[in-house]
Computed example of a mutant assay.
Amino acid sequence: MTSHPARDDRPVLQDLITDVAGLRVGHATDEGAGTGVTVVLCDGLWAAAADVRGGGPGLREIEVMAPENLVPGVHAITLSGGSVFGLAAADGALVELSAAGVGLPMRAEGPVVPIVPGAVLYDLSNPGDKNWGTEPPYRRLGREAARAALAAGHHGTFALGSVGAGRGAMAGVIPGGIGSASCALEGGLVVGALVAVNPVGAVLTEGDEDFLNAPFAGSADPFPGGSRLAELGRLQPGANTTLAIVACNARLDKAEAKRLAMMAQDGLARAIRPVHTPFDGDVVFALASGEIDLDGVEVDGPRIRPWLLARLGAAAADCLARATVRGVRAAADPVR
């Protein structure tokens, strides 16, 4: 893994979402079925939100994060392959987390209740064996990914590329996968991103240059590889989807977390061409640990809360763009 040099009081980072203290990541991969699940586990109940922009999303427990609703945060987020079958991954994850004591204590006796939103991507058209009858693997994979997250160390590394929710992913006509990135801001603030890259759009040009840095000519094809995508059966609603999580160590409320997720969506727009299409179910989750009070952070520029939130959102978009490119490059060449 690459790392950043420290600047001012900024820590040296591993360029992973786990640079945000209190996050752990666990993968579970089913090589036979060509699919998998990724769980991002919070150290406690974190403020959270989701911003949905794709035309065919598959989601679970999204409304619990709305600012007008009671529960103040979430314990984990599941990302899964399998389209609607993958929604069962959150069932498996929450059972495993509850057994480990992670959740809200609703009564003196009985299980604690984990709050575990989730989202799914479509990978049912890849060559893996999907003849699972009445027992899709996703509940099992959700339990395995949650166990892996529980066992992971804080600030721990984790695999990128064709693992977990990214195992069966495609980015246009080439393999997609799990990517991650992070950055440090002043005042001890850290922002990170994790993404399962599975868009109908492309992340790399034909010359293997990423769109993040490629200039566009006015005559450029706005939808690369359209005919090949049609042959692969990818041009149908919900047959793709990029799932992302951005996180920071600031103290945000749920409305501010929503703004963080909304700004982070720009990172997908920089890295994927096109994005948020009718064929995708793109969603970005945002998590905030509450470690650092924004009202006490010293920054260059206006010392007002919206300015700091804007800086966090801009950093989240940058991290998500880089994470997207890293995910595709790691899937294409695991050595990178």
Rank of each mutant, 00 (worst) to 15 (best):
G166C: 11
V203F: 10
G153H: 11
E144L: 15
I272F: 05
L124A: 14
A264Q: 05
I304W: 00
V74Y: 02
V191M: 03
N213R: 13
V200Y: 00
L235S: 09
A316D: 01
D8G: 13
A247N: 05
V102K: 02
G153D: 15
G327V: 07
N126L: 03
A244C: 11
F158Y: 12
D19E: 09
L59Y: 05
A286C: 07
S289P: 01
P137N: 13
V112K: 05
P136V: 10
E135N: 14
A288Q: 03
E291Y: 01
A321I: 06
I62G: 12
F85G: 04
I77S: 12
A151C: 03
G110P: 08
L150S: 07
A50N: 04
L320P: 02
A317E: 03
E109A: 15
D15I: 01
A217R: 13
A202S: 15
V325E: 10
G103Q: 03
L252I: 07
D333K: 05
I62D: 04
L23W: 00
E256G: 13
T18C: 13
A146F: 04
T38E: 09
G44H: 04
H4R: 12
A152N: 09
E231W: 00
E96P: 00
S289Q: 06
D9N: 12
T205D: 08
R107W: 00
T35S: 14
L104H: 06
R326F: 02
W307Q: 10
L41M: 07
V299C: 11
P117M: 14
A316M: 02
M262K: 14
A169F: 05
R259F: 02
R336Q: 11
A88P: 00
T2G: 13
T277V: 08
Q14T: 15
R139D: 03
P114H: 11
L87D: 09
G56P: 05
D210Q: 08
R326P: 01
D129Y: 03
L232D: 11
K258I: 00
F85P: 00
H154L: 14
A89K: 12
I17M: 06
G301K: 06
T78V: 15
T18A: 13
